[in-house]
């Protein structure tokens, strides 16, 4: 600012036409330079941190996926597709984790959305306790997965045993975390308990946007509750369904904390999901190259899910 003022003040003194033009040009260049400097000053710090922390590691990671890097020896050798070949032919644990994660994701998204939508319908009624109930249903979502896993470790080991002996229900007397099948359902229960309240909030916001006059009109025309739900509420809530589905898909696919603290992949690595498998490969087995190959596959799946999500949401926006 100061420079510009000075030059402006000087310019009337200069009588020569040519030099006046050159001052004008330098003024313009100066302004441009200033703008670029300002741009760098505003955007630079965030972008620098982002580049160093996210972009550079991401791209070097892709390179390391094709090497035998183990982090200890200095020399990193290019091995081409060997890591990927190994993963798909020999690494049975990786394949098991991959399939398990897909199975888990399917189960978790269905249950979380069904429970979440049910809760939203429930707390959108004219209940006296609806505000307290909203808080209660949402509360587990606030606490990180790690702590939730530990809470439920106690519930599954001691709480269920006690409930079982009081009620006599055999369901509670199973060795929940000690058995492959029930341990899987244990993880599902915890993540539904955690995620349903969050999904409830999204559906609730959508439900509150359903215009009541349409619902009233339908009722006057003789529609019953189910018909109102099926033909008015559901279509109006559809965009929220898309959002919720994809939120749960990517969070379920990336599950780590609950997996670590509840079962730690056990018993015998039977509940080890992909994110935990990558972590173990890299930081327990110290096979970084292999870990990176897994991480790259992991990224491709997550990216594919997100791209499909964005395309679908965009399409819907255009239609509506």
């Amino acid at each position: 600012m100061n420079n510009i003022k000075l030059e402006n003040a000087n310019s009337p003194v200069i009588k020569d036409k040519n030099s006046a033009i050159s001052t004008k040009a330098s003024l313009k260049a100066n302004r441009k330079f200033k703008k670029a400097g300002l741009f760098t000053l505003f955007v630079g710090p965030a972008f620098l941190a982002f580049a160093v922390i996210v972009l550079i590691p991401f791209f070097t990671g892709i390179y390391y996926a094709f090497t035998d890097w183990n982090g200890v020896t200095g020399n990193v050798a290019w091995v081409g597709l060997d890591n990927f070949k190994y993963l798909f032919t020999e690494d049975k644990q990786f394949q098991r984790s991959f399939l398990l994660t897909i199975k888990y994701t399917l189960v978790a998204i269905i249950l979380t959305n069904v429970v979440g939508f049910g809760l939203a319908l429930l707390v959108s009624q004219k209940l006296k306790t609806k505000n307290i109930l909203r808080t209660v249903f949402f509360m587990p979502n606030l606490i990180g997965g790690l702590l939730l896993g530990f809470i439920w470790q106690f519930i599954f080991i001691k709480g269920f045993e006690s409930i079982g002996s009081i009620t006599g229900l055999s369901l509670f007397e199973l060795p929940w975390l000690g058995d492959e099948k029930t341990a899987f359902w244990g993880i599902v229960i915890v993540s539904v308990w955690q995620g349903a309240g969050y999904i409830m909030l999204i559906y609730l916001a959508a439900l509150q946007n359903v215009p009541q006059d349409i619902v009233e009109a339908a009722k006057i025309d003789g529609a019953n509750k189910w018909q109102v739900l099926r033909h008015i509420t559901m279509p109006m809530v559809a965009p929220a369904v898309t959002i919720s589905l994809f939120l749960t898909i990517s969070s379920s696919f990336k599950i780590f904390d609950v997996n670590l603290s509840l079962t730690n992949g056990g018993p015998f690595k039977s509940t080890e999901m992909l994110a935990l498998n990558i972590y173990t490969e890299a930081f327990v087995n110290n096979r970084y190259g292999l870990g990176e190959a897994k991480a790259l596959i992991f990224f491709l799946v997550v990216a594919a899910i997100t791209i499909i999500q964005v395309t679908i949401t965009k399409k819907r926006e255009v239609e509506s």
């Binding site: 741009f39 955007v43 972008f47 982002f50 160093v52 922390i53 996210v54 972009l55 550079i56 590691p57 991401f58 070097t60 990671g61 390391y64 982090g71 990336k254 780590f256 992909l274 994110a275 990558i278 972590y279 890299a282 970084y288 870990g291 990176e292 991480a295 790259l296 992991f298 990224f299 997550v302 990216a303 997100t306």
Partner: peptide
């Protein structure tokens, strides 16, 4: 350039932490 930088920021939100953590820890 504003659009390009913004798109890079947004696109990178897709990258899961597990795809960054190994080089991040080893290079930082």
């Amino acid at each position: 350039i504003s659009n390009v930088i913004f798109m890079i920021f947004v696109a990178a939100m897709v990258i899961p932490f597990q795809s960054i953590m190994i080089p991040l820890i080893k290079t930082t």
